[in-house]
Write a protein that binds this DNA or RNA. Structure first.
Length: 429
RNA sequence: GCAGAGAUGGCGGAGUGGUCGAACGCGCACGACUCGAAAUCGUGUUACGGGCAACUGUACGGGGGUUCGAAUCCCUCUCUCUGCGCCA
């Protein structure tokens, strides 16, 4: 959500930004907001005047009653009562206007960064730097599910019976590897100075509607029956929700947090759970990083964050690249975003393992997360989030890249302490 | 889960129908004193919105109601504390 003052003062900038994102159908929203806002302010002035009158009258009535002037007091009461009808009417109208304005404002995208490449959709995303050369494998790399099965590390059949499609049992060394990756990633971020946090895995509807749109909510979130609770789709939801409505002291910024949680997603819509395996599932685990900082520092943190993910993957000897998200593929709340993609030796291409975003003040405005600036004014913070690692998906990259001709999978040195010293996982006979 | 008490500014805490956006204290900012500091004294200090401005509106956990008028009364939800019960 952008600042309504920006629309009042510079509607052209807002419109140009919408065009840059190829959302021309949203252009009328800007003028609509301007008009609704004008109307709202007019009506609000009238309401304020009437309320001021009511306040004055109320005070007078108090005085009259004390002086025992009953008749005059009754007369004033009547005047006030008549005013109240109009005030009530104005209140309803104002609420309606505000709701319409808010609805439009939610749909108007955040102003994107100057250096975001322009493009209609994900086909226009721009490749950034690559890290680690991917060596050609001298053998055919099987589908990740086949690798997992040969290592005795997965049971999808049982999961389908207990929970349906989109769930899995990980077993033995693979399950241990999954935990090892998370533990290693957690310690990696702690070493970078981040504060480790385990958040609630369920949140209330007011938090949910603060962090996403209704459509997103419908497509992603699982609701707990009979309770005002939803399973989180990512720990970002509860991590950011934690600061809702807060005014933070300037000295507490930046907040650099790394959180662990399981993530629950319906995955309704575009893709669904059509992919065989563990690429897209209803439940997975993720280590996340979150930063709340002063506006002038968010560009700095953005670069820092995605580079941490790169560093982490490189330390596990998995080739990755940065993919810069183009204007048309950028979600409305985002100022800038990029994916970190890992190399798949089987598909001979990169695939997404994480996503880093700078939302500037758009999310903070929506959730009322501010800080007391040294100027004395309360300003909105900037929020950023990035995947440290989401093991089930990263395991695909891991297995494919570390697979040996004999079917075993090497464990890179950084993970061995978390695997009881093991340096490889070998196939089950 | 049951019963009772409670939720007020950055914090503590008064206020139980009108003159309360809110005493007092802490904290913070500025100033005085000082070579400098501590202590002390003085001044200022809730947030959000409308208006060029004077000024004005709203908000006392959330929502609703009673009233000319609500921090104050009623309903409801959430949370906290105390006691009892239950339980990893």
């Amino acid at each position: 959500m952008i600042d309504i003052n920006l629309i009042r003062e510079n509607p052209q900038l807002v419109k140009d930004n919408i065009k840059k994102k190829f959302q021309d159908y949203k252009l009328p929203l800007v003028d609509e907001v301007i008009e609704l806002d004008k109307k709202k302010r007019e009506i609000q002035s009238e309401g304020d005047r009437l309320r001021a009158q009511r306040n004055t009258l109320a005070k007078q009535i108090g005085v009259l009653m004390r002086e025992g002037k009953k008749d005059e007091a009754e007369e004033a009461k009547l005047t006030s009562k008549n005013n109240n009808d109009r005030i009530a009417q104005i209140e309803v109208e104002t609420a309606e206007l505000e709701e319409k304005i808010k609805k439009n404002m939610m749909a108007i995208p955040n102003i994107i960064a100057d250096d975001v490449p322009l493009g209609k959709d994900d086909s226009c995303n721009v490749e950034g730097k690559k890290y680690l050369e991917h060596a050609e494998k001298p053998f055919e790399v099987p589908y990740h599910l086949d690798i997992l099965e040969s290592l005795g590390g997965i049971d999808l059949d049982s999961a389908r019976r207990t929970s349906g499609n989109g769930f899995y049992y990980l077993t033995g060394d693979i399950a241990r590897l999954h935990s090892a990756v998370l533990s290693y990633a957690r310690d990696f971020m702690i070493d970078k100075g981040f504060t480790y946090c385990i958040p609630p895995y369920m949140i209330r509807s007011d938090v949910v509607s603060g962090v996403m749109s209704f459509e997103e909510m419908d497509g992603m979130m699982y609701k707990i029956e009979g309770e005002d609770l939803y399973l989180i789709g990512t720990s970002e939801h509860s991590m950011i929700g934690r600061f809702m409505g807060n005014i933070l002291p300037e000295t507490s910024l930046p907040q650099t947090l790394t959180s662990y949680s399981p993530c629950f997603r319906k995955e309704k819509g575009a893709h669904g759970i059509e992919e065989r395996g563990i690429y897209r599932i209803h439940q997975f685990e993720k280590q996340e990083m979150i930063v709340l900082c002063k506006p002038e520092e968010s560009d700095y943190w953005y670069e820092k964050l995605w580079n941490y993910t790169v560093e982490l993957f490189v330390s596990m000897q998995i080739p990755v690249r940065q993919l810069i998200c183009c204007s048309g593929d950028l979600a409305d709340l985002k100022y800038k975003s990029c994916d970190i993609e890992a190399w798949s030796p089987r598909q001979k291409k990169y695939f997404e393992v994480g996503s880093c975003s700078n939302l500037t003040d758009a999310q903070a405005r929506r959730l009322g997360i501010r800080y007391k600036a040294s100027s004395g004014k309360n300003e909105f913070v900037h929020t950023l989030n990035n995947t440290v690692v989401a093991p089930p998906r990263m395991l695909i990259a891991f297995l494919e890249n570390h697979l040996q001709p004999d079917g075993s999978v090497n464990i890179p040195p950084v993970l061995r302490p978390y695997m009881g010293g093991k340096d490889k996982i070998v196939p089950k006979k």
